[in-house]
Amino acid sequence: MSSKATRQPPTIRIMATSFLVIWLLVAAFPFLWTLWGSFKVEGDFFSKANWANALFGTLTQAETGGSFTGAGYEGAWVQEEFWRAALNTTIVCVFVVTVSLTCGTLGGYALARSTHRYAFWFLLFALMFRAMPPITLVSGYLLPFFEWNLWGHLYTTVIVLVAINQPFTLWMLHSFFKNIPKDLDESAMVDGCTRFQAFRHVIIPVMWPGVITTGLFSFLLAYNDFAVTTMLLSKENQTMIPKIASFLGTTQTKGNVMFAVSAVVSATAPLFVMVMFFQRQIVSGLTAGAVKG
């Protein structure tokens, strides 16, 4: 930033800074507000009388005796068994990420190294598949899954999510592998490896940065999915996101909207932590991969 060409006069700096502060408020405030509000009672979170109640928890104090209450969390996690959904989400995410990356690294490596024309067609088809809204595919799954008794199980959902994410995973890993010099595997092959041995001995040890980044996005896709999980999972196998959606139908009538609020905060927390630790990888994945989930 020493260059004169990139230095800004004060007026522009002030304008830019204030614009940024507004954007940051818009981006972050809803999360902070909901996090704060999730520890109140519903009468404060949705306050007809005075919006400031949500800040100070007037009704919360009146109803529970303290300014903060964990009642929403207790209701969601214990009473509504949100922990079961959290467990299912963990299982689904772990398996989706592992299987996606296993298939994706093999395929992405081959696509990055092949100079034949069909590799290009393969990628183009993957791009078209990437554009399919998952829900259109879901309508194709239901009938065969009912017929063959595959509907409702976690493993079906895992495989479906892996398949739906595969085009994106392939594109991203393909561009990461392109950046690993091909001299590396070629010298391994001259040194006496088969193609697969070269991949195993030489490429696998150096591919982790790209694989971790792609893994983060695979995780996000699995974690955030609603269309597939809500349609393909039976009630007891539900993951967090469809579970939250089902709260909207049932609990709102019972006046327990705070269950949903605390479930939402619970589901957001892991993502928050993830951004904190993997900010660099996410940014590099969004830009270097030239694809988004």
Binding site: P181, D183, L184, E186, S187, A188, H201, V202, P205, V206
Partner: peptide, 8 residues
Amino acid sequence: FQSYGLYP
């Protein structure tokens, strides 16, 4: 190789 292809 031109860029040596050493295993990092």
